[in-house]
């Protein structure tokens, strides 16, 4: 088991390495970017750049420095926010983004699994069609359409919830809903398909033939096989929720990483965008790693 863990962790390092490498060379080679020698830079910034990026050294040495810095968690100073380093900006936004993300994942799992199980157990009934129709809607309507609609309804027309701001629980409600709707839909569809497939397994028939009540068949015999595929959803879901958080934080004006990222992109704040990409890459890789390890732990057939 330990050796499998070690192997799996080792195999995710190259991916991270590639992300950092691409990041480094993109930042360096960007035409009209901050490192384009054709473009004059204010002396003060030039001195700063030199200090951080060792521009007078050969490129491989620069790369080495960059790698070292990133490993230390240092993405350099922001180009636009002169008083902040990229790491500070990420650290600032992280609590907001992680709260949103975790809540969305939790909500998606709970509601999605519940709806999926109901639909699967009532396969081809009106409830099933309703749930699947809603799921299709959830997957199809983009979050940047859903968010304005919800703001219009809950914020403007009914005045039930705030449409911007941060700090209290009520501020999280709409963003988390917008963030999780597509994921709830995805989880519901996956759960339904997975449970239907599992219930057709011969070992479920064995359990029935043994006289086990439906409740026990579901909780003991069908649960693990049904939920394992949902586990692998967590990887892509992290990526999707991060992507979604960019939109949600922009629309609801939340001080998370996503908004920094978009502001950075619009302001051509190269180091900030770069840093966020590497950070997001790291998060996604970490999540995929966790999923694989959990999978190995939960499925007795996987050999280490």
């Amino acid at each position: 088991m330990l050796s499998y863990f070690a192997k799996r962790i080792a195999s995710s390092i190259p991916t991270l390495f590639i992300i950092i490498t691409i990041a480094f060379f993109m930042i360096r080679l960007a035409p009209g970017g901050p490192f384009d020698s054709e473009r004059p830079v204010p002396a003060e910034i030039a001195a700063n750049l030199e200090k951080v990026y060792h521009l007078n050294d050969p490129l491989p040495v620069q790369y080495g420095y960059y790698l070292l810095n990133v490993l230390k968690g240092d993405f350099g100073p922001s180009f636009k926010y002169h008083d902040f380093t990229v790491s500070e900006l990420i650290a600032q936004g992280f609590p907001v983004s992680i709260q949103l993300g975790l809540l969305a994942i939790l909500l998606s799992l709970m509601i999605g699994v519940l709806l999926g199980v109901i639909a699967a157990l009532r396969q081809n009934s009106a409830i099933d069609y309703l749930v699947m129709g809603l799921a299709m809607t959830g997957i199809t309507i983009p979050n940047f359409v859903m968010a304005p609609i919800l703001i219009l309804l809950f914020g403007v027309f009914w005045g039930l919830l705030p449409t911007s701001g941060w700090g209290e629980l009520k501020h999280m409600v709409l963003p988390v809903i917008v963030l999780s709707l597509p994921q709830i839909a995805t989880v519901a569809r996956m759960t339904r398909a997975s449970l239907i497939e599992t219930l057709n397994m011969p070992y479920i028939r064995t359990a029935k033939a043994k006289g086990l009540p439906t409740r026990l068949i579901l909780s003991r015999h069908a649960s693990r096989a049904t939920l394992l595929p949902i586990l692998s959803w967590l990887g892509p879901a992290t990526a999707a929720i991060i992507t979604g958080s960019v939109v949600v934080e922009t629309i609801f004006g939340l001080p998370g990483i996503g908004r920094h990222f978009i502001n950075g992109a619009l302001n051509r704040d190269y180091t900030l965008v770069m840093g966020v990409v590497v950070f997001y890459g790291f998060l996604i890789i970490l999540m995929n790693l966790l999923v694989d390890l959990l999978y190995a732990w939960l499925d007795p057939r996987i050999k280490y």
Partner: peptide
């Protein structure tokens, strides 16, 4: 009534 099935490879729950 007890039942025995054709394929023992799939008749048992692999997770238990």
């Amino acid at each position: 009534i007890g039942m025995i099935f054709q394929d023992p490879m799939t008749a048992l729950n692999p997770y238990l």
